[in-house]
């Protein structure tokens, strides 16, 4: 665990000057890591990274190769591609979450990072929501109503669920339609249902 509680942003770009700009803009709010090429970026990508800002055009390992490598990992990080032109394809079908166009400006970059963090927060709340829903359903199937009423474990889980449900409702009001599409789990990528 890091003692630094700030969200971690990893910036991958072959131009040092661009990396310095991102650092200047983001270092107040976030813990910023930088990498000047794709393979170095992947080395610096661990489970603590919340957001990746990725230059699509780099010598050596291309941005698309990096995207594929990130998608193959289990991590929950959100990825924004930094590009000189508006992508002319359907964003939701690509293995990244959003994009930032050059020329870069600070408010736009900060907004993108914040939106991606909001989505990540939403996704993790939904996962927790499911885990608790499943636990409650299991307890409900094992115990009578009278037993549930006196079960501390059940009551505690029910309270946590109610609290989580309220947080999720609150968090989701900040999502726009694009965020909603991105938060829909990609079943096609999960060939094996991962139920333990």
């Amino acid at each position: 665990m890091s003692s630094d509680e700030r969200p971690v942003v990893l910036v991958i770009d072959d131009e040092e000057s661009i990396l310095r700009i991102f650092e200047t803009w983001l270092a107040d709010e976030y813990a910023v890591r930088t990498a000047t090429n794709g393979s170095d970026g992947l080395d610096k990508l661990d489970e603590t990274v919340d957001v990746v800002l990725l230059d699509r055009r780099m010598p050596g390992m291309s941005g698309d190769d990096v995207l594929t490598a990130i998608a193959e990992r289990d991590g929950a990080c959100q990825v924004a591609v930094v590009t000189a032109v508006d992508p002319d394809f359907e964003i939701a079908e690509m293995p990244f979450d959003t994009y930032v166009t050059k020329p870069l400006d600070r408010p736009a970059v900060v907004e993108v990072v914040e939106r991606l963090l909001a989505r990540a927060e939403y996704d993790s709340l939904v996962q927790e929501h499911y885990a608790l829903a499943e636990k409650l359903a299991t307890l409900e199937s094992e115990k009578t109503d009278a037993e549930l009423a006196t079960s501390e474990r059940y009551q505690e889980a029910a309270e946590r669920f109610a609290d989580l449900d309220a947080r999720l409702a609150e968090q989701s009001t900040s999502l726009d339609r694009e965020d909603i599409v991105r938060s829909i789990p990609d079943a096609a990528a999960e060939t094996e249902p991962s139920n333990d």
């Binding site: 499911y130 829903a133 909603i180 829909i184 789990p185 249902p193 139920n195």
Partner: peptide, 14 residues
């Protein structure tokens, strides 16, 4: 699978 359907429903309902 059930978890994916749950997350799908949760996100559509939101």
């Amino acid at each position: 699978d059930q978890e994916t359907v749950y997350r799908f429903c949760q996100t559509l309902t939101r």
